[in-house]
Amino acid sequence: MAEDAFTEHRPLLFTLAYEMLGSAADAEDVLQESYLRWSAVDPATVEHPRAYLVRVVTRQALNHLRAVRARREEYVGTWLPEPIRTAPEVSEDAILAESVSMAVLLVLETLNPTERAVFVLHEVFGYTHGEIAASVGKTEVTVRQIAHRARRHVQSRRRRFEPDSGVTGQIVQRFLHAATTGEVQTLMDLLAPDAVQISDGGGKVVAARRPITGRAEVARFVLGVLRTTTTATRIEHATYNGMPAARFVTGDALDWLVAFEIHDGRITGLYGVRNPDKLHRAEAVLPLDRGGHPLWKP
């Protein structure tokens, strides 16, 4: 049945759409559109359902990405990907964890839609240039050139990444304890000299409009934010986008979520999402799958 094949490959298809769009909501829309197209096809005429579905989702995601790019250019403040709660096994797959990390998704935003599709399909999912050509409507030679250009672009801009683990989780716990108790020196020691804090309020809630850079500036910002946090707010530890994260919850409402980027025992990036539109799907753990392809060596 068509539904059975789509359900079987849904985690893979969602992962592909999310990495191309940086939005779980948009990825779900693409999957819905793709399912409607798939359900109109006779499965008996499709020799390789997974390859066919990947092609359909890629084309729908490309169309969607081209449509939303203008909206993102008009976004109020800094745009961050919609955070997704990930299972422990995602962090165990270093390639998958890095490919959905905030830092890499932000770098992918600087690629044009075709470059992004080619990079994701080749470097993360392991598809050949010939297979990708059929999905993006380019020749194999052109795809090879695009892949080389996109990889060089991403490699020159992505930050070093360590997935969520017991060690990174402890660093985040120490950082949050120091921040809530006002231990400034400990806070500074846990931050890398070039640490960056990025907030996304979408113009709907209070948030820093521009990235904050430098250990002292980030520490000052964090302490200032936590001073405004009420005693009714609790901090919960979780994993989002393969990264250690903290959830700030008041009552039953998730006020904001911060994902931490860590390298060599220090926090290099803090990604704070406050835009309520991006927190609607923050509770459920979303299954991700890249199909077992061992490409994209960090």
Rank of each mutant, 00 (worst) to 15 (best):
A2K: 08
A5I: 09
T7L: 12
E8A: 13
R10L: 14
L12E: 08
A17K: 01
A17P: 04
L21N: 01
S23H: 02
A24C: 06
D26M: 08
A27F: 04
D29N: 11
D29K: 13
V30K: 00
L31Q: 01
E33N: 11
E33V: 12
S39I: 06
D42H: 01
T45G: 05
V46I: 14
Y52W: 11
Y52T: 09
Y52Q: 11
V54K: 03
R59Y: 07
N63H: 10
N63Q: 10
N63D: 15
V68W: 02
R71E: 14
E74G: 03
E74I: 06
Y75T: 05
T78I: 06
D93I: 05
V100P: 01
V104H: 08
V107F: 09
T110Q: 14
T110E: 14
T114G: 05
V118T: 07
V118I: 09
F119N: 02
H122S: 13
V124F: 04
G130K: 12
T142Q: 15
R144S: 15
Q145R: 14
R157Q: 12
R159P: 07
R160Y: 09
E162W: 06
E162M: 09
G166Y: 02
V167G: 04
T168C: 04
Q185C: 02
P193E: 09
D194S: 13
V196T: 12
Q197W: 11
D200H: 05
A207M: 07
A208E: 10
R210S: 14
E217D: 14
T228G: 13
T230C: 02
R234Y: 00
E236L: 10
H237D: 09
A238R: 12
G242E: 03
A246G: 07
V249T: 05
L254H: 00
L254A: 00
W256K: 03
E261D: 14
E261Q: 15
Y271R: 07
R274H: 12
P276I: 06
D277R: 13
H280E: 15
H280F: 08
A282L: 03
A284P: 00
A284T: 12
P287A: 01
P287E: 02
R290L: 04
H293G: 11
P298M: 08
